[in-house]
Design a protein around this nucleic acid. Structure first.
Lengths: 245, 245
DNA sequence: CGGAAAGTTGAATGAAGTCAACGAGAGTGG
DNA sequence: CCACTCTCGTTGACTTCATTCAACTTTCCG
């Protein structure tokens, strides 16, 4: 798998049109092709640690990673969820402020920091794409702030589920706004709790409550079936109260 | 005030070296000079509303503005605090996802969207600066997520005060890590509560508690005196438990 | 001076956290 | 193949911190 990917050209890359290279022309792509390398981090592995110096920037090709901060007394809050096409690292600054860990096996497309920074300077298509992606991440972070600051436990869990549905929809291109959906959760209950700013117990109780209310089914702990999205969405308490954009 | 600013050249601009134009050379600055205009929004005024289309991008020159979201049932969460040099708007997308309001009288340096977007394309110094600023904002938003998700009411208020101290320090260049500090709060208790994801009452009680503990003095509701920062910082519960960078 | 808005304080309520026990699967090794 | 263990997830009982509802005080402006 790792080896096969190592020979994969950017043209056939599954994230070619969504990652930081999305807007590259053939020339730029060839340059990136020349400096890229693939790495696979096993589930549970550390991709980066807060404060440490990173000499590679990378894109997530497959799998799921978490961005989080742990306080001195062990309290932990997730602040980012990285899925295929998401970018890791900060051009222009070597040190990261957050921990990044592999929630599943994660394959990364890596670029040496110096080389990539040079590309950003010479290739406006990469710089522009990175700005767009960062602005999108900022919007996500701010919506997340609203969730953490003002939503109830139940609303948070519903939001989490809907955001997974939405991300999956944008990846596959399918836009279901109603009907049954099956979700494979990439995160454990503990990670979901860290995502939502709740405890494991509260998170678990909310899943149970949603199941008892018939809004979800849970064939296994990691599998969620939503019989009808339309039943879940009204409770999401988005600013307009309506379905998700 | 407004008129005087309208004649101010970028060279003398108070935010010249911190705003989106910080890295511009003289040529680029001259282009910006040509398309900029100043606007002053009175305290309480709306600068932009979620969902509406913006045809100007701007920098905050003076004053303080808030970025927030209001849910259908009135719950409100602040997700950004804009101070001098901060940028408003999103190149490449006309609609904003959040409300922006003037917490004090705010003076903006505005650029027509289309013209500014052209400059971003032609002037890498502006694009690069904007990327850096956006990445910084993302870090702020993520630290804010930690505050909202995991800190107690007392810790949140302390963090809020320390972040104001820090921002003031970076503006004036003075780096006090101990000793007395005087703060003029740009926000009402209600806005602080929206910032911290708390109610007005809880926020007020925490100020009272900090006063009773001798950590702060409150000559007026809007003025906070911190006799010694070193007493406040240990309670901030940063990841390392130590003083603020 | 008077009225509204902003801020503080108190008492009661409630949602989520804590502590603790229990149950279900997954993997290991006899 | 089954027993064993270990991790993960669920459930229950109780506690706690922040919210809610309400009254009161102070400050700000017209």
């Amino acid at each position: 798998m790792n080896l096969r990917l190592a020979r994969t050209s950017c043209i056939e890359c599954p994230i070619r049109h969504r990652a930081v290279c999305a807007e590259c022309d053939d020339t730029e792509l060839a340059v990136l092709e020349g400096i890229k390398s693939y790495v696979t981090v096993p589930k549970g592995g550390r991709i980066a640690e807060a404060g440490e110096s990173l000499d590679h920037l990378s894109s997530v090709v497959s799998g799921c990673a978490t961005v989080s901060k742990t306080l001195a007394d062990g309290r932990r809050q997730m602040v980012g969820l990285l899925l295929p096409s998401d970018f890791i690292g900060r051009p222009g600054r070597a040190t990261l402020s957050f921990d990044i860990e592999a929630a599943t096996d994660v394959t990364l497309c890596r670029f040496q920091r110096r080389a990539f920074e040079a590309i950003i300077r010479s290739s406006p298509n990469v710089a522009r794409r990175l700005l767009t992606m960062t602005l999108d991440e900022l919007d996500v972070a701010r919506d997340w702030q609203v969730l953490l600051g003002r939503l109830t436990a139940r609303e948070r869990v519903i939001h989490f589920l809907l955001s997974l549905v939405r991300r999956e929809a944008t990846e596959t291109g399918a836009a279901h706004r109603s009907g049954p959906v099956r979700l494979e959760l990439p995160l454990s209950r503990e990670m979901i709790a860290d995502y939502l700013g709740l405890t494991i117990e509260t998170t678990s109780r909310q899943f149970t409550a949603l199941r008892k209310d018939g809004l979800i089914e849970t064939p296994t702990a990691r599998t969620i079936v939503v019989p009808d999205l339309l039943n879940l969405m009204p409770e999401a308490m988005d600013e307009d109260g309506g379905p998700i954009a």
